[in-house]
Design a protein around this nucleic acid. Structure first.
Length: 819
RNA sequence: GCCGGAGUGGUGGAAUGGUAGACACGCACGACUCAAAAUCGUGUCUCGCAAGGGGUGAGGGUUCAAGUCCCUCCUCCGGCACCA
């Protein structure tokens, strides 16, 4: 029996954190990577180390991956569980502007602080693999990948108007705009024509969509991505015009082609210029276009906004289906950057066209009839049967779509996904490694000259002119063209924050490699990430960009698999006690340091996992922490009642014995013990941490009733608990003189013959309601169960003279008598 | 508007279609104590003294049996949104 020891979390936790660090027990050794060896790559979405520090919500995901990683390690897997920093981006830049210091310094400070806060929680990261996206040795490979993308013809310069945040003074990708506002600062986004680098992510739309199928991701995330990619099947139909310029329209309802009463083009469309002098009311048209461009996207896309338009006098389009002449409008409800930027309007069968037609008093022609014959309404948007459609009349919408498309146009697929606007007019990002030469045009920086290091500047302020602050450092900007050696200028735009995070998981496999992005052997061993944990807010950005980047790397042979993250799990947010998001602004922030100080890291870890389902948003309640702390103390104190059952010594007896002179658990407790091993093992696999912990609580409560706890049982219990509470269990492990660390010991196995009690309780139901019960031996026959049910007290007293019309017997569980 | 997800005690939450409320917080009472804290024990969905009845957002349905499956709603949360 071990000596009495007091549970002093402060002493224990500091002590073991130091020891683990010194002995590097969590280091992932990759000197021997054998194919076929069991591996597990568990990854957290790496954080942006902000100056604000952590609140208790941040480590929730890290604790979960830590538990999984520890359990996998104990189960004989080679585990990779790394951490790093996604440190480019606005907050560090703003810090730099305010303090007039290089952002690198601010980043160093915040990383150090962040790391300290994380380390007191006792996470098992292999810090030898720490990465930082702002390290030139790292972004060398971000730039390398960009050059490969450029080489493959997937990056291009564009002058199309893009989303511009007037406050951040930079262009934004479509993904960075929320509700027409800048995702960072909530300033309404404007459209601004600006030279920018764009990546053809749309070329991968199909693969990004189809490959979702095989991923073990939460369905809502997959749906969000499907939604974002927005594949839609339709037809393209060309309307000839009297101007000689053709107008192509995209429609998903080509079955309504005979109902077209006008055509609409987007105000930004090039078609307007192409029509030229054919437009008789040019002045008004120019005016209209000017007014439309002035209003922001939020106003323009507001729900129920009245649709504004203007007829292009002098332009007539011809419906290829019936050669009818229809007027052409420009209107703000048609978007230039979707489909063809022009639509055929069928007011009888489209809500928007209907509203527009009503407003401008345009004809409405019915060509689809409801199959269920309720009709009568002027507007009918569902599929039905064609009428007034010449030889196609009588067909259903579905039949007609293929036939009409074939006759007058072609079937096409369109996506909502836009190409990725990849340049930012800011300082703190990876320089885009190209040189502009008057003679040779865009020339990539030779691979041997990578990385293009971000130079130091005096002012980090964005210029607002559409140029990055880098443009002012002439000594950096002016270089020789690598091709013709003539005068050239460096690209001064930088990459978006999403660049560095699009491939970082690969770097963890081989963090110090200077010769390649990743060693193919290491990549082959570790890929894909087995388990990825992070916030759901990345559904339509990071997770799309990373999948795209990965697929590109696959295409050029850098990686083997087509998808980076096999299994994904979202962390549910921890809300403040007032039910709002934890934020300094609301004064509801709980700091993990103070919780660790008062209750200990093990308690914090247990609490965050016990709060509720892992992926669910949940409210923090400091008052509730005491429950898991009590549990931990019970486990701790239990060590005083442990008897060595490994030797047959006399001493304290357990309440019941399994055999002569051998201390053991009574049958019921033994079964509970085996059930617990199974449940904890299974639940960690499915992230059911809350139920895993409650199962251990049930076992501990039961063992409280036992006079003496066998040592083998106790050691198993603390092994099960070790991933959750690594410090206390390590101390107890040592207290019992066990060799090595508990965290490198073998994960317990259960005895599958000891999962069910021999004695069962059978419920007697009448018409599905529980009325009585009886005990029986496990494996009792159906006939016997039926007989015992009919003999039960309740049935005898209430249904003695009646015969049930039906009897349902669920083996070992229930007899339901139907009267 | 479209696409997802969720509604269970005072609270956080458990429940392969098969005993609803495990586990935990809180609360009440009791034990220990001069006393308090800590700890332990008992109770705690609801109506009822009890026997018994009712009960998982609302209403229908399927089933021997529904928190769980289906339909129609309501509320909340997340994503997308004049996407043709």
């Amino acid at each position: 029996m071990a000596k009495k020891q007091v549970y002093d979390h402060k002493k224990i936790e500091k002590k073991w954190q130091k020891k683990w660090e010194a002995s590097k027990i969590y280091k992932t050794d990759d000197k021997t990577l054998k194919t076929g060896q069991k591996k597990f790559f568990v990854l957290d979405m790496f954080p942006y180390p902000s100056g604000e520090g952590l609140h208790v919500g941040h480590p929730k995901g890290y604790i979960a991956t830590d538990i999984v990683s520890r359990m996998k390690r104990m189960s004989g897997f080679k585990v990779l569980h790394p951490m790093g920093w996604d440190a480019f981006g606005l907050p560090a830049e703003q810090f730099a502007i305010k303090n007039k210091t290089n952002p690198m310094i601010g980043v160093k400070k915040t990383v150090a602080r962040f790391k300290k806060q994380v380390s007191i929680i006792g996470l098992d990261y292999d810090w030898d693999r720490e990465i930082n996206t702002t390290d030139p040795k790292y972004y060398k490979w971000t730039q390398w990948a960009f050059l490969k993308i450029l080489e493959a013809g997937l990056a291009y310069e564009s002058h199309e108007p893009i989303n511009w945040c007037p406050s951040c003074k930079t262009g934004l990708a479509n993904e960075d705009v929320e509700d027409g506002k800048c995702e960072r600062c909530a300033t309404p986004v404007e459209k601004k024509p600006l030279r920018q680098w764009v990546i053809k992510i749309t070329k991968y739309a199909d693969r990004l969509l189809n490959d979702l199928e095989a991923l073990e991701w939460p369905e809502p995330i997959k749906d969000a991505q499907r939604n974002w990619i927005g594949r839609s099947e339709g037809a393209e139909v060309t309307f000839k015009t009297n101007t000689g310029v053709d107008v192509s329209v995209f429609t998903t309802r080509v079955d309504t082609l005979f109902g077209v009463t006008y055509v609409v083009v987007a105000p930004e469309s090039n078609l307007i210029a192409e029509f030229g002098d054919n437009i008789k009311n040019k002045k008004e048209v120019a005016e209209f276009i000017k007014n439309t461009s002035k209003i922001s996207d939020i106003e323009r896309t507001a729900v129920d906004k009245p649709k504004n338009g203007l007829k292009l006098d002098g332009v007539i389009a011809i419906n290829p289906a019936n050669n009818e002449e229809v007027p052409v409008f420009i209107a703000d409800y048609v978007l230039a950057n979707y489909g063809t930027g022009a639509v055929m309007a069928v007011p009888a069968h489209d809500t928007r066209d209907y509203a527009f037609a009503k407003k401008y008093d345009l004809p409405i022609r019915e060509v689809i009839k409801s199959e269920s014959e309720i009709a009568g309404a002027e507007l009918f948007v569902d599929d039905g049967v064609l009428i007034n459609s010449s030889k196609f009349s009588g067909l259903t919408s579905g039949e007609a779509r293929g036939k009409i498309a074939k006759a007058y146009g072609k079937l096409v697929t369109k996506y909502k996904l836009r190409d990725w606007v990849f340049s930012r007019q800011r300082y703190w990002g990876e320089p885009i490694p190209v040189i502009h030469c008057e003679k040779c045009g865009v020339v990539p920086v030779p691979y041997k000259d990578l990385p293009v290091v971000l130079p130091k500047v005096k002012s980090y302020e964005p210029t607002g002119t559409g140029e990055s602050p880098l443009a002012n450092i002439l000594s950096w900007v002016n270089v020789k063209c690598p091709k013709c050696k003539g005068p050239g200028k460096r690209e001064t735009n930088t990459m978006p924050q999403w660049a560095g995070s699009s491939w970082y998981y690969l770097r963890y496999m081989d963090p110090k490699n200077d010769k390649a992005l990743v060693d193919p052997k290491k990549e082959a061993f570790w890929s894909p990430v087995d388990f990825y944990v992070g916030g759901a807010e990345h559904a339509a950005r990071h997770l799309i960009y990373a999948r795209f980047w990965h697929k590109f790397l696959q295409d050029i042979g850098v990686v083997k698999y087509g998808e980076p993250f096999k299994k994904l799990q979202n962390v549910g947010l921890i809300m403040g006690e007032d039910g709002r998001k934890m934020s300094k602004r609301y004064g509801n922030v709980v700091n993990p340091d103070t919780i660790v100080e008062t209750y200990g890291a093990d308690t914090l870890r247990l609490y965050e996992m016990f709060m509720g389902p892992f992926d669910q948003e949940i409210t923090w309640k400091t008052d509730n922490i005491i429950g898991v702390r009590r549990f931990l103390e019970k486990v701790w104190r239990m060590h005083e009642r442990v008897v060595d059952d490994t030797k047959k010594t006399a001493g304290k007896k357990s309440v019941s014995k399994d055999g002569e002179g051998v201390f053991g658990l009574d049958n019921a407790t033994d079964i509970l013990f085996n059930q617990t091993i199974k449940k904890v093992t299974d639940d960690i696999g499915t992230l059911g941490f809350n139920t895993a912990i409650s199962q251990m609580m049930i076992l501990v409560n039961q063992l409280e009733k036992v006079e003496a706890v066998p040592k083998s049982v106790y050691l198993t219990l603390i092994k099960l608990l070790a991933p959750f509470a690594p410090h206390a269990t390590e101390e107890l492990w040592m207290l019992f003189g066990q060799k090595g660390s508990i965290h490198t010991s073998l994960w317990p196995e259960y005895d599958s013959k000891k999962l069910v009690l021999n004695t069962i309780t059978v419920m007697v139901q009448v018409n599905g309601k529980v009325r009585d019960q009886f005990n029986a031996e496990l494996g009792i026959s159906k006939e016997e169960m039926e007989k015992l049910a009919l003999e039960s007290k309740y049935i005898k007293e209430n249904f003695a003279d009646k015969k049930p019309s039906r009897i349902i017997v669920v083996p070992n569980k229930i007899v339901n008598l139907v009267y």
